[in-house]
Nucleic acid binder design. Structure first.
Length: 645
RNA sequence: GCCACAGUAGCUCAGUGGUAGAGCACUCGAUUCGUAAUCGAGCGGUCGUCGGUUCAAUCCCGACCUGUGGCUCCA
């Protein structure tokens, strides 16, 4: 039987007819030997495959060089194989798991008797360099199930994967020198393509992410085509470390943790100022149309039985022993919603009151598993800017539009940009299709009214209603899911919430759950990292540090400080015995936005020599009153800092 | 919760089977200074907790506590 002929279309429009099953390499070589040298892989009809793989279909034929972003994942996946090659040489007992490329590197999972040490990691890295230097070609083979069972007889994890592959699937292996892996590919042509890589860390990882399966040893690594790209990546990791809110929080004396209260922050005076300033801002934003309320922290389990948390969420709740019943009949609230429903249903409501917006900043507790805790971003005690809105179906569109604008406006104040995610009806859900049509339609209309780009996450909604999530990007490009707008048709049923309509009969309201910051703790962590601790003036715990050059000017400086404070500016005088240089250094380290220096000239003229944070020696001689007006203006407008360093 | 790593002065960290050190901070003294560290002296630690091994443990072993990285990215 003659092989089928496939037509490939090159980017310049030329065509090639090749026999099905021809390795891609041969086609590339026929175009030009120079091109073959630069080629990493090819894309046929948009599908990436490597040079070793036979061509099985026709279509657009594009040669991928290292400059093509798609080739990086190939390099990294090959890096994973090279890592496994090195590990197998040094630890022949290691059973291999999976080794994929990931967003910024790759990993490989191994099952070993004794876990890897940092010394092992260094040895593996050195061995990888050797494997690369040996320039082993990646050899692709297509095999049967039976052959695979022989090749991987000693690798139970691979056998498990092999057994899952159906009869119709091509089973392929890749061999580089001594190491053969069950692998779909694609790969670079040979091991020498891996030049710029680094092993980063080891970690335990459950086989297939399943906590019931065995724990494997994962090695994380990264690789790039060019040395300067690898260096830049390492630099980026260091930059993230420099901005780490746990480090900065200590340096700026904002918060602390203690082993007696794991997962709960202690806020210092400065940190509390920051928290309160955010609260004040939110309260200001909520002045119009929101009812701030406070509800208890501790509840009888009866409430959680109604809400459903007692059954599903109890493991994550802090239970409290009742001395009379000797039972854990009480729990700290892990969320505000049920308590807001209690408050709503405590009296009758008219349709004229709706939308009724309950807003709170109460403290919540969730008993996160110990391994999940991390700085301020994953805590057990936190505050949400939590809002529950009770409204009629017909009000959803307007309300969502209002909320979206509110949330985006809030982020904009901090220079954070958001992308929106629209999550629609999941497979298992309550309510009628008409109800979902209405709800999704209203959310969609509101989304489009913002003019912002959004991503559709079909089927990702809650079982009780669709939602919009706000995904925020910070100044170093990291993403955080913060705000949310969720429609809820289930809670009003469970809690039997009603309002009297204009027909004087009881109707069911809809509930919208809305959070802007998520939790304050996490939001502050994000702000710290976003600003690298150099907060805008309005947020800075200390806004101005007044520095008399010598104690002769202390009286004058104290007067100026008092005047600033009277004007609502958080000003502190530093009249230590230290030199001016020393005190400037201290103020810079604490990221105080303004340093106001007073010497003989300033004292006589009623001026200040103002130094701005991060701007070096440059000084601005300005009258005290003018400076006060300027700072007050910056606070009032919540001006963002000058472009970050 | 599970795996690895870590826990030494307020902070950052060094160190050793024979009960500990540096810099900064802090206190005191001197210095009164013009834009990122003035000089000197001093104070300060049950080496995370409990247990074991040992003549002897901060160091070796075990448990616990707390923290850090990770436990979804498919052969």
């Amino acid at each position: 039987m003659t092989p089928e002929t496939l037509q490939l279309v090159l980017p310049n429009g030329a065509t090639r007819d090749v026999a099905a099953g021809t390795p891609a390499r041969d086609v590339v070589a026929s175009i030009g030997p120079g091109l073959l040298k630069a080629a990493i892989a090819v894309a046929v009809d948009g599908e990436v495959q490597d040079l070793m793989t036979p061509i099985r279909k026709g279509g657009a034929f594009v040669v991928l060089k290292s400059s093509d972003p798609r080739s990086l994942a190939i390099l990294r996946h090959s890096g994973a194989h090279i890592l496994a090659t090195a590990v197998r040489r040094l630890r022949p007992d290691a059973k291999i798991g999976f080794g994929p490329a990931i967003d910024d590197g790759f990993y490989y999972d191994f099952e070993v008797e004794t876990p890897f040490t940092p010394d092992d990691l260094a040895a593996f890295e050195a061995e990888m360099a050797k494997v690369a230097a040996e320039k082993f070609p990646f050899v692709r083979a297509e095999i049967s199930h039976g052959e695979g069972e022989k090749v991987f007889a000693d690798d139970p994890l691979k056998l498990e994967r092999l057994a899952e592959l159906g009869p119709g699937e091509v089973i392929s292996t890749y061999t580089d020198g001594p190491f053969t892996d069950l692998c779909r590919g694609p790969h670079v042509p040979d091991t020498s393509y891996l030049q710029h890589f680094k092993l980063l860390s080891t970690a335990g990882a459950y086989w297939r992410g399943d906590e019931k399966r065995q724990m494997l040893q994962r090695i994380y690594a990264t690789a790039f085509w060019k040395k300067d790209e690898l260096d830049a990546h390492i630099h980026q990791m260091e930059e993230a470390r420099r901005r780490d809110h746990r480090v900065v929080g200590k340096q700026l004396d904002l918060f602390m943790f203690h082993q007696f209260a794991p997962g709960a922050a202690f806020w210092t005076e400065r940190g509390t100022t920051l928290v309160n300033t955010l609260h004040d801002y939110l309260r200001e934003l909520h002045r119009d149309g929101y009812a701030e309320i406070k509800t208890p922290l501790l509840y009888n389990k009866g409430l959680w039985e109604i809400s459903g948390h007692w059954g599903k969420y109890r493991e994550n709740m802090f239970l409290v022993l009742d001395n009379e019943t000797k039972e854990h009949d009480f729990s700290l609230k892990p969320m505000n919603c049920p308590s807001h429903y209690l408050m709503y249903s405590a009296r009758k409501h008219s349709y004229r009151e709706l939308p009724l917006r309950y807003n709170t900043y109460d403290v919540l507790h969730r008993n996160e598993v110990s391994g999940a805790l991390s700085g301020l971003t994953r805590v057990r005690q936190f505050q949400q800017d939590d809002c529950h809105i009770f409204l009629m179906d017909s009000q959803i569109a307007d309300e969502v539009k209002r909320l979206t604008g509110f949330i985006i406006g809030y982020y904009t104040t901090f220079g954070l940009t958001a992308t929106l995610k629209f999550a629609t009806r999941p497979e298992t859900r309550i309510g009628t299709d008409e109800m979902w049509d209405r709800a999704e339609g209203a959310l969609k209309a509101a989304l489009e009214a913002t003019g912002l780009p959004y991503e559709l996450k079909a089927g990702d909604g809650a079982f009780y209603g669709p939602k919009i999530d706000f995904d925020v990007t910070d100044s170093i490009g990291r993403h955080w899911q913060l705000g949310t707008i969720q429609l809820d048709y289930a809670a009003p049923e469970r809690f039997d919430l009603t309002y009297a309509g204009d027909d004087n009969t009881a109707h069911r309201p809809v509930v919208i759950h809305r959070a802007v910051s998520g939790s304050f703790e996490r939001f502050i962590a994000i702000l710290i990292e976003h600003f690298a601790g150099a907060f805008p003036v309005w947020l800075s715990p200390e806004q101005v540090r007044v520095l008399p050059i010598a104690s002769d000017f202390a009286a004058n400086a104290a007067e100026v400080t008092a005047k600033m404070r009277a004007a609502g500016i958080r000003a502190v005088m530093d009249n230590g015995n230290d030199t001016l240089n020393y005190r400037i250094r201290e103020a810079e380290k604490m990221k105080v936005p303004y340093m106001a220096v007073i010497g003989k000239r300033e004292a006589e003229a009623g001026t200040l020599a103002v130094r701005e944070r991060g701007q070096g020696k440059k000084q601005d001689i300005i009258a005290v009153d003018d400076f006060i007006a300027r700072v007050r203006d910056e606070i009032r407008t919540r001006a963002l800092p000058k472009p970050a360093e």
